[in-house]
Design a protein around this nucleic acid. Sequence first.
DNA 1: TTAATTTTTCAATAAGTTTTGAAAATTCAG
DNA 2: CTGAATTTTCAAAACTTATTGAAAAATTAA
Lengths: 168, 168
Amino acid sequence: MKLTDAKLQFIASWGAFGTHWGINRTMAQIHALLLVSADPLNQDDIMEQLSISRGNVNMNIRELIDWALVDRVLVPGERKEYFTAEKDIWKVSRLIIKERKKRELDPMLKLLEQLKDVDGDKKDKHVKQFVDTVTGIKRFGEQADKMLDVMIKADENWFVGSLMKFFK
Amino acid sequence: MKLTDAKLQFIASWGAFGTHWGINRTMAQIHALLLVSADPLNQDDIMEQLSISRGNVNMNIRELIDWALVDRVLVPGERKEYFTAEKDIWKVSRLIIKERKKRELDPMLKLLEQLKDVDGDKKDKHVKQFVDTVTGIKRFGEQADKMLDVMIKADENWFVGSLMKFFK
DNA sequence: TTAATTTTTCAATAAGTTTTGAAAATTCAG
DNA sequence: CTGAATTTTCAAAACTTATTGAAAAATTAA
């Protein structure tokens, strides 16, 4: 397969993949494009290669920068801003875990903490089922929280070496 | 907080949570409702408690059954079908991992396998960047794949006991 | 059987999300 | 400063996804 076609297919698939993970299609496509580009790109490059509008590029690039997946780089002698993606996929996954944990898991745990103290007789089976469910999810979430914290701090060697040996 | 309000808040939040994870809002809400209900519910119960249409309940219940998160149960003397959710959150998480792995990770790995054999001179920096990126993601995906397989097979005791000790 | 009940389907509609593009704001070279 | 280049904003439009509800299909009690 030609490089150009392979790039297009990678970008399309990464975009579709992203939608399953709460990341919008275009944001994932821009990310994909930058991941496979050897040199930094500017807004016009991205507009042209993905056939999308300036506003769209601008908004999604900002979002990618928020997630720390993309950095602005200064190209000497150029007025325009250039962008480049973090290429180390282990670092990328840690950045994504960190961001999603903050946005999703942490607030959920906070809510469950409140809900577990519902009023009413613990002997009542409806109250009991609610409390048991909430408590169970909370415990699970706390374990996941710890595990993810370790992953966020770990580096690839730790991950591949220790964890994967552990997982046989 | 009263049980009724706590339930509503749990259902609303679980629904919002689900949308971040590629699960539609209503499907997650029905799941939440069944998780906190002590007894099985029928379509009319769900329609009433969530204020949604019959068609909507029917489609999303079927989807939940596909994922094996919900089971049909026969209530003696009743004509209607009743539904109940798997309450063990560890089992629930394994079912979700299994389904999403099959739908998302496996196809992505298949694609990356093809893309890594792109034509062209490996010395060319554009080809090199593409191949390096694809190979890196593929390797990462394969590790994740193995790890998730172990998790799918594991039970809660293994998970909490061994893994969590490992994670300090 | 038949007819009442229940479940399923699906076209139309509604709701939600993303994208555009032109105008406003900002930046910076001269 | 001034004005050209660039970036940002955001209301309107396009697109995507979810929901409704009525009709069709399936089920089952009598």
